[in-house]
Structure formats: C-alpha cells, structure tokens
C-alpha cells in the first residue's frame, strides 16, 4: 500500500503525470508505478481521472446547483436504494449522504437553470421517499477539486536570491 499511497499523492495533485514522471518524483521505478496504478484502479480506489474546469471561462452555459434532499426511509428502502436511483441520472454530478438537517447533498449540472429545476421537480422530487428538496444554484466557483481558480502566477519572490 505504501507505493500506492505515494502514487496516489502525486495523482491527486495532477492526474496527468506520466508513469515516468511519477517514478522520478517518488523514487519508485516505472513498473512499480504502473503496477500501483493498476492495483488502485482494480481495487476501486481510483475511479477515474477528470479535468478540473472553470466553466465560467468558456463560452458555454453551464449551471450547477447543490441540492439538499430529504428522504423518508421505510422498511423496504434504505439510503443505498435511493442513492442508486439519484446517481443514475447523468445530471447528477456528485452525490453524498451527509449528516445534519438533510440527508443527501446532490451536485447537479445542467445547461440552464430551467434544465436543473426541471430535473429536480420532474425526476428527484416525485420519488416516493423524497419529502423535500432545496436547490442552491452556484453563483461563483472559487476553488474546485482542491484547485484555486485565479489568474495563475502571483509569485512575487525575487527571481534570484541567496
């Protein structure tokens, strides 16, 4: 697991690092890196690799919302079953069971506010276990996936110093 942990540290910073570069950074050899990645994927520890995108900088309209979902469980239905159904929708970007005032936090993505609200009112809210939804549209994203969205380089150090 130690090799895997080190590889994971690099991948979670930058998933596009090549095996050769990961090897150089960790001191492992390239085969060991590839084996670690394969095993991370096989064991379902790493589920995928995605770009962290600042959609506001594209021409594309992209609306995101965090939706609070309250549910009422019955004898037949647990959180897993409900999660399964909500997760199936492509509009569901992320889904978490959370502690506190509501049960699920759903990150929803759509092409417009209408799109998102229609998804909630037509797909999520009607589910028999769902008792309430509260939708928060995301107005601005400052940081995502651990990466701060800002104009790059604010290195104000002297370029050469002792």
């Amino acid at each position: 697991m130690n090799d895997e942990r080190e590889v994971l540290d690099v991948l979670t910073t930058n998933a596009r690092e090549s095996a050769a570069d990961i090897a150089a950074q960790t001191g492992l050899d390239e085969e060991a890196v590839e084996a670690a990645i394969a095993s991370l994927e096989r064991e379902g520890i790493v589920h995928g690799y995605q770009a962290v995108v600042d959609w506001d900088r594209t021409d594309e309209e992209k609306v995101r919302a965090v939706v609070e979902v309250n549910v009422e469980l019955d004898r037949e239905t647990g959180y897993e079953e409900i999660a399964d159904r909500i997760a199936k929708f492509p509009a569901t970007h992320a889904l978490h069971l959370v502690s506190g005032d509501y049960d699920f936090a759903v990150e929803v993505e759509g092409a417009s506010m209408q799109d998102v609200s229609r998804f909630i009112s037509e797909q999520v809210a009607p589910m028999p276990e769902v008792t309430q939804t509260v939708t928060h549209y995301i107005m601005e994203t400052y940081k995502d996936g651990g990466i701060r969205f800002e104009d790059g380089d604010d290195d104000d150090r002297l370029s050469v110093s002792p």
Binding site: D155, R157, L158, S159, V160, S161, P162
Partner: peptide, 11 residues
C-alpha cells in the same frame, strides 16, 4: 520569460 531556479526561499 525566465523560469527561475535561482530562488533561495520557499514558494
């Protein structure tokens, strides 16, 4: 256009 590896302090 310089990339500096000449800096003696943390980034």
């Amino acid at each position: 256009d310089v990339i500096s590896l000449g800096v003696g302090e943390p980034d």
